[in-house]
Design a protein around this nucleic acid. Structure first.
Lengths: 216, 216
DNA sequence: CAAAAGCGAGAGCACTGCTCTCTAAATCCG
DNA sequence: CGGATTTAGAGAGCAGTGCTCTCGCTTTTG
């Protein structure tokens, strides 16, 4: 870790910072290596010393965004499981609305030809974990299909003692939250439930019932 | 409607057909006006006589894709509301999996700077309608917030006599389906629920319960 | 201290969306 | 019918993109 390595880290951070600014304004599709280079005062080819390809930069941004979201979620605490779920859901939505492009970078359409590289998997798991933890207090009906519960076996790596059916139900409800937020961000609710606050709130209440978190 | 106009329609159709092929292979982001022009045997500038901008072409593709999806959904019939919901859900998922780029064109990340033009709204409504119709047979708890039911008032234009709370619940469940399918297509379920068949099936069963469609 | 490795600059390739001008054909209208 | 107008398509060109390659220069390494 000589001076050289520190300089490299600083430059890498500067590039990602510029990339995050570009991302916030243009979205993932409009993220341009040359524009980033301009912003950090380098020529475009120099950026490729740090990220060999645009995809590599995007992958780094994805991991970073997962981290930001996970951080926000971990800051959401509440006394009862029901309240915790509510807070998690609203934290997710608020985060998405304040950083729409970051949310869409994570949960939106994959870049054409892009396949999620392995390093994004633990980052994604960090986002799911706080939701899954509530599964410890859930009592769900259904979600007991044999092969489904087999698939959920690995979830105990994230949350020990988590029931498979609870894990599956939480996963499904997390998908529902992400779906609702995605539709809202994309403007699909404009003709019907806009602003989406009330629909979202009702959805969360329904989820608390479905997950059996109401009894406290 | 002279010969000239017919020729124009044919060329327009040829362009959209080529665009659909490109879309299926490259996705919306990789859709190139020049590649389309090459495929129909024109020079790129000629394409701009038919679609003044790439966005205009994309809008046309979006409307067309909504139409395809709505058509598929309208072909799904079943005797009981519960079975109809199941069939609609699976039709949605199957359609998305067979045409991932078309699904993502509709429900995925909007193109940077793109805002859905008004002509897409009725097309989107045509997709929601078959789901909303099942709301006539639903009995839902919750979703009775005053302002939410006020927002749902316009839904009776699509489905007469539809209860606002049912409309809201259906909308939320449609968002859940879209969210689950989006996550599946994006590969977000690979580490957990892959293949997603069982999770999806369990989700649909849960929805039937939530919507009160089970009693028949 | 010489050799190797790393960094940044610059030029260049093939591609993109889009505009502009030009030619030729079809249509309109007096 | 025939001149005027509209229209389709071609071609060149502009500004931008991701990415590669080569060339100096500096820093690190053996």
């Amino acid at each position: 870790m000589g001076i050289r390595d520190e300089a490299r880290e600083r430059t890498t951070a500067a590039i990602m910072e510029a990339a995050r600014r570009e991302l916030a304004e243009e979205g993932a599709g409009g993220l341009s290596m040359r524009a980033i280079a301009r912003e950090v005062g380098m020529v475009s080819s120099a950026v490729y010393r740090y990220f060999p390809t645009r995809e590599a930069l995007l992958t780094a941004m994805i991991v970073e965004s997962y981290g930001h979201l996970a951080e926000a979620l971990n800051g959401a605490s509440a006394r009862t499981p029901a309240r915790r779920w509510t807070r998690l859901a609203h934290t997710l939505r608020d985060w998405a609305r304040s950083r729409p492009h970051e949310f869409q970078l994570i949960y939106g359409t994959p870049i054409p030809g892009y396949v999620a590289p392995p390093e994004t998997i633990p980052a994604a798991a960090a986002v799911a974990t706080p939701f899954l933890q509530i599964g410890l207090y859930a009592s769900v009906e259904g979600f007991r299909n044999r092969r489904l519960t087999a698939q959920m076996a690995g979830m105990t790596d994230l949350v020990p003692d988590l029931e498979p059916s609870a894990a599956a139900a939480i996963l499904a409800e997390l998908a529902a939250l992400i779906g609702a937020v995605s539709l809202e961000l994309a403007g699909h609710l404009v003709g019907s439930a806009d602003p989406a606050d009330y629909l979202f709130e009702a959805l969360v209440q329904r989820q608390i019932g479905t997950l059996g978190l109401g009894g406290s």
